[in-house]
Nucleic acid binder design. Structure first.
Length: 460
RNA sequence: UCCCCAGUAGCUCAGUCGGCAGAGCAGGUGGCUGUUAACCACCGAGUCCGCGGUUCGAGUCCGUGCUGGGGAGCCA
């Protein structure tokens, strides 16, 4: 007999004479002559209740089933005689695939997130983490669905990179050199003897590669892992995370902001439509205001605010900030939080930042003082999108690289795109985990990544 | 990297002024019951994070290290 997923059985309109399920025991309650066993197979949040009576040949063993044990149950899908569930399985056979010993760390009671992180290999078996990772899967699908519907092509940009300075933070070095005996040339490691014949790193962004494909295929996006070797110890940062990076030819900053806003709204709506049960768990146990927050984001128009105006608002706010505000300052978390949580109470798109605090590839505005950058900030998470219109003018981008002391030779291929048929184009990076945090209300990025990597932590 | 907080049974935690190490849950045994975070009774369970110090005596006070969490910076 073929196995049926539990979510399919629970959706049945009428009973079934013979079904087979396989899953893990969540809990068992014994009655005088039979046992209630709740089984979960990961297909949904819901368990199915199995009735195993003492007529079964192995009933003595069934009475000893512990939480976490794996079983295969055959029986009749019938309306439940008790309250609390519509269907249950009257078992005709309960095969014990493997019994979990009493040392199984997951209990029926609630565990802290901190404890569950120490058993990351088992935590997806809990309601909360099962739901989180089902939603993660749905959200990833929604990303591809969204872009495909709009004619974007999916580009696999390299994870290993030779550019040592993509301008987005510290990089992880990749090498096959023997670290106990590194070849030295002129007091430096001799990378000419390394695998690629030069220094190599893990990517911090697929942007520069994606730009090349936007300038060939038109509208493209990347969606893959990125790596930052920053010693960041916050609930919003991880060393390995996934980023979505659309890049569009013939698109200015306004079009870029339109896409960012539309993308976020669509992805949230997709999860609301497709994962209502899993989402309800978070609304009930993790963040009571979750549904109101998501409704607010989906229905409101994001506030678009030039950096200059944002600074003026902050200066006039009467708030006592720890850090000073003024044109040319990078906005601090407290400033961003004030803007999105206190001032407009919805997502904010800040744009036209001072050129002095932004990287070389952002397009210089006519005022010569600002660049066509934009950040999308959302309540509680902060920056969820960072992007810009790219500098398409060869002389301007070369001048900026020189001013920043960058080696143009390393970027010869990137600069050639500004030489051959250069066009205005734009793109941004959306933090996939931060979006997941927003959607679920989970407050720590470590809890939306199956096996998170953070400074000092790479177990599992 | 900086600032703040925490570390006690498998888990969640209490532990008063420095004076015998505790509870609930989980586990085991028995009972009861179409139960559903089941219920009732009994039982076992400890490097009080490590190291050093003060003291007649330290889970408790001091120093230090480690681990975890929160905040800041960096950013997605």
């Amino acid at each position: 007999m073929q196995r049926t997923k539990i979510n399919v059985l629970l959706d049945q309109e009428s009973g079934l004479d013979a079904v087979l399920i396989k899953g893990w025991v969540r809990t068992r309650r014994d009655s005088k002559s039979f046992s209630f066993i709740e089984i979960n197979d990961g297909s949904s949040l819901k368990n199915i209740q199995v009735i195993a009576d003492d007529g079964l040949a192995n009933y003595d063993d069934i009475r000893k089933l512990t939480t976490g044990s794996a079983v295969a149950v055959q029986g009749v899908l019938a309306p439940s005689k008790g309250g609390g569930q519509q269907w249950e399985i009257q078992a005709t056979d309960v095969a014990i695939i493997s019994a979990a010993p009493e040392t199984y760390p997951l209990q029926k009671k609630r565990h802290t997130d901190e404890f569950l992180r120490t058993i990351a290999h088992l935590r997806p078996r809990t309601n909360k983490y099962g739901a989180a990772f089902r939603i993660r899967s749905e959200l990833a699908y929604a990303v591809h669905h969204y872009f495909r519907e709009r004619g974007f092509r999916y580009i696999h940009t390299p994870i290993l990179t030779g550019s040592d300075c993509e301008g987005a933070g510290e990089m992880f070095r990749v090498t096959t050199l023997n670290l106990a005996d590194i070849p030295i040339n002129d007091k430096q490691a001799d990378y000419s003897q390394d695998f690629f014949g030069k220094e190599a790193n893990l990517t911090v962004s697929g942007q520069l590669s994606a730009e090349m494909f936007a300038l060939s295929l038109g509208d493209v996006y990347t969606f893959g892992p990125t790596f930052r070797a920053e010693n960041s110890n916050t609930r919003r940062h991880a060393a390995e995370f996934w980023m979505i990076e659309p890049e569009m030819a013939f698109c200015d900053l306004a079009g870029n902001m339109d896409l960012g806003e539309d993308l976020i709204k669509n992805l949230i709506r997709f999860v609301m439509d497709h994962s209502p049960d899993d989402l309800a768990l978070f609304a009930r146990f993790v963040d009571k205001t979750l549904m109101a927050t998501l409704d607010n984001i989906v229905t409101s128009e994001f506030e678009r605010l030039p950096y200059r105006d944002a600074v003026a608002i902050l200066e006039k706010s009467g708030q006592s900030f720890k850090f000073p505000v003024g044109f040319g300052c990078d906005l601090q978390t407290e400033h961003e939080r004030y803007l999105t949580e206190q001032h407009v109470k919805k997502p904010v798109i800040l744009y036209d930042y001072p050129a002095s605090i932004k990287p070389f590839y952002m397009r210089v505005n006519d005022d010569q003082e600002t660049v066509a950058a934009m950040d999308i900030l959302v309540p509680s998470i902060g920056e969820i999108i960072g992007g810009s219109q790219r500098e398409e003018r060869l002389e301007v981008i070369e001048a900026r690289m020189e001013a920043m002391g960058m080696e143009k030779e390393t970027y010869w291929w990137y600069l050639e795109s500004r030489q051959f048929g250069t066009v205005p184009h734009s793109g941004f990076g959306l933090g996939f985990e931060r979006l997941l945090m927003l959607v679920t209300g989970i407050s720590n990025i470590r809890d939306v990544i199956p096996f998170p990597r953070t400074p000092g932590s790479i177990d599992f």
